[in-house]
Design a protein around this nucleic acid. Structure first.
Length: 260
DNA sequence: ATGTCGTAACGTTTACGA
């Protein structure tokens, strides 16, 4: 089962680029972030025509997550538990049943947190504490869990082409990295790092200042696997080349192959 | 030259978030 995560930076602007990638990559499941659309305006037919089931959790203008799946999606829940006052659409869960295994899918768009310090950074860290709590609950199910999305975290200096440029940024501050490690330390595996080591693996290149042409990228999209999901991991990759196409997102897809 | 983009709105331009 091929499961991908992709921050598309606006569904309306990405219909062509996303459709072309789906036809080539043929993922079974896609976790989408930044759909920037309310549920009623999400163009589900485009994906249903390709055989995907579609579940969305959107809001006007900003944020918004969705799941596309060739197999039916069951037990769908929307919103990260832990703060009923949080209006941001950043979390969706569903279960997909493979040939051998059912997998709990979590699609997430973690707050950016800039400028730091400040209320937006406080919100980021509070959201990560809630994510850790939910991750712990999911571990207790002892089922395969896949948490994929835009984490807005540069885990280590090797995950940025220019680490010094991010030193004071909410994506790389020590408190951000520590909060990310606290989730991993519960027992989750970072899928890419289970397969690939070393620098130069990026999932985001800013639109500004020719970042793509200079390969000035960062790795901020991640897939975390529970132990039971990690046992099923057979491959992981980044579809880097689509960043160079017409009207690209500033992110590219990250995918895992699970023997599920 | 904040080397850009996507979305929304009191829209032909500005504000915001990233």
């Amino acid at each position: 089962m091929k499961i991908a995560t992709f921050n598309i930076n606006g569904i309306k602007a990405r219909i062509e680029a996303l459709s072309a990638w789906l036809d080539e990559a043929e993922p079974d499941v896609v976790l989408l972030q930044e759909i920037k659309s309310v549920d009623a305006n999400f163009p589900a037919e485009i994906f249903e025509d390709r055989g995907y089931n579609v579940e969305t959790h959107g809001q006007k203008s900003f944020n918004g997550v969705a799941i596309l799946s060739k197999r039916p999606l069951e037990d769908v829940t929307r919103g990260l538990p832990g703060d009923d006052a949080d209006e941001h659409a950043r979390w969706i869960e569903a279960t997909v049943v493979g040939d051998r295994q059912a997998v709990r899918l979590c699609g997430l768009y973690l707050p950016n947190g800039n400028p730091a310090p400040g209320p937006k950074y406080d919100y980021k860290l509070a959201w990560m504490a809630r994510l850790r709590a939910r991750a712990e609950e999911l571990l207790a199910t002892e089922e395969p869990v896949v948490m994929g999305g835009d984490y807005n975290i540069i885990p280590q200096d090797e995950d940025a082409a220019r680490p010094d440029a991010w030193r004071e940024d909410a994506l790389a501050l020590p408190d951000s990295r520590a909060a990310f490690r606290r989730i991993l330390n519960l027992g989750y595996t970072e899928a890419l790092r289970a397969r690939v080591q070393g620098p130069g693996h990026y999932t985001f290149w800013d639109y500004q200042a020719g970042a793509w042409n200079k390969n000035n990228g960062i790795r901020i999209d991640h897939v975390l696997l529970s132990p039971q999901a990690s046992d099923l991991l057979t491959d992981c990759g980044i579809d880097k080349e689509i960043r160079g196409r017409d009207k690209p997102s500033d992110h590219v897809p990250l995918w895992v192959e699970l023997d599920a």
